[in-house]
């Protein structure tokens, strides 16, 4: 039994490295594609009557194929780790970082093809690779969960919802960044031709928040429920709880800005960027928060 668990852990590690390598190649490929489009856009591609920035070109099939391959390797890694640990792979910061990268990629791949705009692929890949690199700095040994975490159902639901929300927030963040870049870069620049339509990016960001906002709400409520079972208090103003609530409120503010036409566009996009900063703070907070989530360790046991 022990040797099977060790073998699975090795498979998980192998999948992790394979995913990192393939996604690195995908990033390279998508950048080359982007640069090529820019050169083409700057020289030969015609402008549309309503402005050059409306050009929308799907990412190269090579890059997308590599993303699928990297995602498959990472899925294998996550599945093997789940089997090796005998629980959902969310019990420490390493596992959470890898799962976060997985949901970022899943969110990207689940997008309808017409919404996979150029510029999105390298940005999403950079983010996923950044998370995998961050995970490589953390202890990766499979450790048994402390008694408070020994609730598989709620561990899976609570952290699973958080991961879906984080992944969607990442997509919204990339869309907002591209939206802001679209607004900043002058029309004469070749890059404007490469960047997708601002309206499309705005819709993409909003669509991602439509997923992340209720999921983050579910994360908070499931966490509160779990806290009330394990510790007898549904709300303790724990730093991680507070940071998650802060993140949720930033996205709530974003949704309210969309009601007002004056605040749509740049203001909304800035809030999406701010929301993702809050997401990252919440995610990495285990490094310095302490409190009820301090067991989600960042040091060797």
């Amino acid at each position: 039994m022990g040797s099977l668990s060790e073998s699975l852990a090795r498979v998980a590690l192998l999948g992790y490295f394979a995913a990192g390598t393939v996604l690195g190649l995908a990033l390279l490929s998508s950048w080359i594609g982007l640069m090529g489009t820019r050169i083409l856009a700057g020289s030969r591609l015609p402008s549309s009557p309503s402005g050059a920035h409306t050009l929308r070109i799907p990412p190269s099939s090579v890059a997308r194929g590599l993303v699928w391959l990297g995602f498959a390797a990472l899925s294998l890694s996550v599945a093997a780790r789940t089997a090796a640990a005998g629980r959902p792979p969310y019990a420490n910061q390493y596992e959470f970082a890898v799962a976060f990268a997985w949901t970022v990629l899943a969110g990207y791949l689940l997008l309808p093809r017409e919404r996979v705009v150029r510029g999105l692929t390298p940005a999403v890949l950079a983010l996923a690779l950044g998370l995998l690199l961050y995970a490589s700095t953390l202890p990766s040994a499979i450790t048994p969960p402390v008694p408070a975490l020994q609730n598989r159902l709620l561990l899976g639901l609570h952290v699973g919802c958080a991961l879906v929300a984080y992944g969607a927030n990442a997509v919204a963040f990339v869309a907002a960044l591209l939206f802001l870049a679209q607004r900043q870069v002058r029309v004469r620049s070749g890059w404007v031709r490469v960047l997708p339509d601002a309206r499309l990016l705005d819709e993409l960001g909003y669509g991602a928040v439509m997923v992340s906002f209720p999921m983050l709400g579910a994360t908070l409520l499931l966490g509160s429920w779990w806290s009330s079972i394990a510790w007898g208090s549904y709300w303790s103003w724990d730093p991680k709880q507070s940071a998650t609530l802060a993140t949720w409120l930033v996205y709530a503010a974003y949704l309210h800005t969309r009601v007002n036409r004056e605040w749509q566009g740049r203001g909304s996009a800035l809030l999406l960027v701010l929301g993702f900063c809050a997401t990252l703070l919440t995610f990495a907070g285990n490094l310095f928060f302490g409190g009820l989530h301090s067991y989600a360790g960042v040091t060797d046991a």
Binding site: P239, T247, L249, A253, N260, W263, L281
Partner: peptide, 24 residues
């Protein structure tokens, strides 16, 4: 007002970030 709500939610969010970072 939705605008006032957005500002208030932002303020509350900022306060909570401070609460998460500053020890009690």
């Amino acid at each position: 007002s939705a605008q006032v709500a957005a500002v208030g939610l932002g303020l509350l969010g900022a306060a909570l970030v401070a609460g998460a970072l500053i020890p009690r």
